[in-house]
Computed example of a mutant assay.
Amino acid sequence: MSSPGVPLPLKTEHSTRDRLYLNFLNVIPFLIGSIAILRDSPKWVAVYIGIALFFFLVIELRFACTHCSYYIRSKNCVKCMMLPGIPKIFKARPDPHSPIEKAILALGALPVFLFPVYWLIKDPLLLGAYVVAWALFFLTARRYECVRCINFECPMNRVPAEVKEDFEKKGGLSGNIEISAENIRLSGTDRCASLRAEHEFKDFLYWNFVTLTILFSAGLAIGISSTGWLLTYIFIVIFHFGILEQYFFCTHCPYFVRGEKCLRCMMNWGWPRHFKPVPYPPGKFDLAITSLGFVIVIFFPLPWLLKVPFLLGTYLVAILIFLLTIWRYECGRCIYFGCPFNRVPAEVRKDYQK
């Protein structure tokens, strides 16, 4: 199949799952900001909500969305991943953004991001969570959505120039990136969602950033009460991911043999390969041991997290984001077919193995 550099096909439409997932990511920083403000004054929360609504429903809709292909394609209501069902109260403008429109957008966005900072700096935990939440949203959108978005006017758009030209020549008829057997089999065409044969260092950076969000919130909750138990938790995490998971799960993975002396996968980049690859899928015993290790890692910090509700919420939301994101964007094109979460169709697996 393909290398990680092969561009994914453009997404001409958004599904309900797209809207739910991206809006879930988007609402998290707003919720954190609202919590910080609410501790001081409910009235200022109302002001904050008003500022956000004015930006998204007026400024962004008029000065950004009207130039967007998704907006232009919609009939009566907007059909995009961020503002579904909003009436098209402004006229579509297929021409590029003017400098004035870009300036208005930038000035309009600043209050949305900066308004809650006054209250957030009073609580370093909330401030950190706020920054991380926005970082997760933008990194995820840029990494998985901006590379296949047909809104070429957006400054975050990362679709290669040749793909844009090809899309425009075809009159905007490129297919969506739904991970299906038909699309994956069409590897090498502009409609394929090809399997990921290799990982890159940037994959490792992204996924470990998401993972560290989980581990940091748990470690912080434990560390507040006991340094000894924190060291125990760190040992458990290192033992599970560095030894237990590698031996019983990773040795069966095709990515395990990538690289020379060190691993080259999105979760373990540069980690020494202590064990020999196993050329067959993991058995029930391997999966049971790996699952038990994950259960211990996940549930071990709960007694301490229950004492700090905010960290408990951060921990659970971070786990949910991790699972939703990896299931949505990675499991449908992963070549580790022995993994119980793999979503590549059976006929595509057979074709790849041949």
Rank of each mutant, 00 (worst) to 15 (best):
C334N: 03
V257R: 09
A109G: 12
Q353E: 15
G228I: 03
N208H: 10
S194A: 14
V237Q: 04
Y247M: 15
A52K: 03
R185H: 14
I51K: 01
F55Y: 15
R17C: 05
G108L: 02
K261I: 11
I298F: 10
E162V: 13
W44Q: 13
E13Q: 14
M267C: 09
C253R: 00
Y48T: 01
W269R: 06
A141W: 12
L220W: 07
I224E: 15
A52C: 12
P42R: 05
F248W: 15
F341S: 07
F256I: 03
A64R: 02
R196C: 06
I35M: 08
L53F: 13
N208Y: 10
R258L: 13
C65M: 01
G259L: 07
A103Y: 06
I49P: 00
G172T: 14
S226G: 07
R333W: 03
L231R: 04
H274K: 13
V297C: 07
I222M: 02
Y70W: 08
E145P: 01
F201D: 08
A36C: 08
P301S: 10
F249T: 01
V237S: 02
A346S: 13
K164C: 05
F337W: 06
N151G: 08
L31M: 10
E178P: 05
G85A: 07
I321H: 01
F235L: 14
F248H: 05
L61T: 04
V278L: 09
V348G: 00
K122C: 12
G283M: 12
W327V: 13
F294G: 03
W119N: 00
R349N: 04
L31K: 01
S98F: 04
L31G: 07
A103T: 09
F256A: 00
N268S: 15
G128W: 02
H199Q: 08
E245T: 07
T325F: 09
L83V: 03
F294N: 04
P124A: 05
P160C: 08
E101T: 10
E165Q: 15
E145L: 10
T325H: 13
D40E: 15
L292S: 11
V348W: 00
T66Q: 07
G50D: 05
L323H: 09
